[in-house]
């Protein structure tokens, strides 16, 4: 029998090793796996590399994990937003490394890893500082840079509904990075607002099929 449900947040994040690359979903305040991020503090993993669009706001979720000193490096498109106080302090005092990647390139690099590909040529950042050091190649008259796949050891996801097979649905723009990150990590962990019985989710409505999900835990709200 397939049963990916776990009973607690502690069980959900068990075994994340030190130094792991952790894909952390969400955009702005939508689709953030805040409870899972906070559970990682308790779990104890250190020296993490986080991949996330934003670098956390306030003192909760990803910001709490940063504040606990567990993150050595963040790969991010837009780290600074209103309320990103924890990140800004760590950055200003040199206590976190930042790799800045254009937003669509972060997600396409993860998709590339998920699809088993070795990289792709992109026109984004050509002629800018963010293309420095990248392989350039002209294809059919247009210049591109080589972007490499970005694979996670772990993905932390937030979904709306999930069943014991790991099938997930999302609400509105809370979908954002979740489906791609679910596919791009060795261990994908989802917090879901509501666990439902297998069969309750219309197959046409499944956005992330269970094959991409390893564990799910119910976190109402």
């Amino acid at each position: 029998m397939i049963d990916k449900r776990v009973r607690s947040l502690a069980e959900a994040v068990a075994g994340i090793p030190d130094g792991a690359v952790v894909l952390c979903a969400g955009f702005g305040g939508a689709g953030l796996p805040n409870a899972l991020c906070e559970a990682v503090i308790e779990q104890g993993a250190r020296n993490l590399t986080i991949v996330a669009n934003n670098a956390g706001t306030g003192r909760t979720g990803l910001a709490a994990l940063l504040a606990a000193g567990r993150v050595k490096r963040i790969i991010c498109s837009f780290p600074r937003s209103s309320g990103s106080v924890v990140f800004e302090e760590l950055y200003a005092t040199g206590r976190i490394e930042l790799e800045l990647v254009p937003q669509g390139i972060i997600s396409e690099r993860m998709r590339c890893a998920a699809a088993g590909l070795g990289g792709f040529y992109s026109p984004v950042s050509v002629g800018t500082r963010l293309a420095d050091g990248k392989e350039h190649r002209e294809i059919d008259g247009r210049m591109y840079v080589l972007e490499k796949p970005l694979k996670g050891d772990v993905a932390l996801l937030a979904a709306d509904r999930g069943d014991r097979w790991g099938n997930l649905t999302y609400r509105k723009s809370a979908r954002n990075f979740n489906p791609t990150m679910a596919m791009a990590a060795s261990l994908s962990i989802a917090q879901v607002r509501r666990l439902v019985e297998v069969g309750e989710i219309d197959p046409e409505m499944v956005i992330t099929p269970g094959i991409f999900v390893d564990r799910l835990v119910e976190v109402p709200g």
């Binding site: 950055y91 800045l100 984004v124 050509v126």
Partner: peptide
């Protein structure tokens, strides 16, 4: 220097 850089979707949009 007092301001961490952020690129967001700007470069993707500008070429796409």
């Amino acid at each position: 220097p007092g301001f961490p850089p952020g690129v967001g979707g700007a470069m993707d949009l500008a070429v796409g």
